[in-house]
Design a binder for these strands. Sequence first.
DNA 1: TTTGAGTTGTGAAAATTATCACAATGTGAG
DNA 2: CTCACATTGTGATAATTTTCACAACTCAAA
Lengths: 205, 205
Amino acid sequence: MKIAENTINRLIVYKKELNRLATDGLSNVYSHKLAHLSGFPSHLVRRDLMNVGYNGSPAHGYNVTELEKCIADFLCTPESVRVILVGVGNLGRAILDYCQQQNPKISIVAAFDKDKNKVNKVYHSIYTFHIDSVKNYIKENNIDVAIITVPAAEAQEIASALVESGIKGIVNFTPVRLQVPAEVYIENLDMMLGLEKVVYFVNGD
Amino acid sequence: MKIAENTINRLIVYKKELNRLATDGLSNVYSHKLAHLSGFPSHLVRRDLMNVGYNGSPAHGYNVTELEKCIADFLCTPESVRVILVGVGNLGRAILDYCQQQNPKISIVAAFDKDKNKVNKVYHSIYTFHIDSVKNYIKENNIDVAIITVPAAEAQEIASALVESGIKGIVNFTPVRLQVPAEVYIENLDMMLGLEKVVYFVNGD
DNA sequence: TTTGAGTTGTGAAAATTATCACAATGTGAG
DNA sequence: CTCACATTGTGATAATTTTCACAACTCAAA
């Protein structure tokens, strides 16, 4: 069954909130509470959970840990995912740091840059290689996902190289709309776009 | 007329691509080309442009600079927007830097942190104030939009304080779902969520 | 002038997504 | 046991969003 992208977004949010509830020691939760925590209406929560195929109880709602696991299974979250990052600028280094504090299942295993002053250095405990070695690295280590944080002018060239080496998904932090084959999944995380959207909704209507 | 959030996203993308076309010296563009550049189908481009009320010519397509201005007007993009940033960690500093390289109409005018070692310092030419002064700053300078890059544990407390002071829109880089009144617009830019989504679409289907 | 190629703008249809409303269910108190 | 209550799961409905298809238009060339 095909699931809408928005549904996936929400499921990821539910999963995170469930995880937090679990660490808080709660064992069950009602759709209303999950709705309140995640910011979506409760009937959407229930509808989304229909998709993952987990059944709650009318009396106790959902079992927190079971539902979390069920969503994780549904999202096919593998036990560990290895990701690379290209572009060790301010933003790239911040992401190297940030990622380690979050989901331990997803880890950045290598960074790449063209600047010789950065190559062979370690940032936030991630080793930086020269960009020329990225193709080999991807192939030898079977990497599927890359994060791009290079300057806008280099983004397309880098993306093409990554795709050529077999990358299947890219988190794109540059403002450039990357041109890649349809089977490569691109998640654009343009911070400026986010800011502009907020400005629109605050100003306009 | 009410415009869907996705439409707003696309319009912002069109605007950026148009800007790039303009600097490249092109004077007009067809919906197909704009579609290719932005990654959306051409009939969606035309449908979206219907909303902003700009009319192209069947022979020459759209005038690049006029359309760009028209979209900007539609999005109510003010001549200049002043934004503050709360949380001068690695990510916060990277954003301070990144923002200045992009849209010159939107500028971060002040940063805030609770760490005394950061207060009164200047990062990427933005002055850092103590977090205790943020409420006054917002009121005195009439700030509408804030960027939150504090640790997850402090996010909600900060958000509540900002809202109390009159903030109308927040770009939230923390993984926390902020609880705010409905009239405050929140844009969640959770990098981990983006990564997880890519992992899902790469792995699963 | 007339024809033809290529594009826009848009009504209408299709597909998708969200909302509603309520039957079915499980629980605990009396 | 039975009843009242609160919640889930879901068919049906409504709303939204996208896609299709083509008439209307512009220009250039013959």
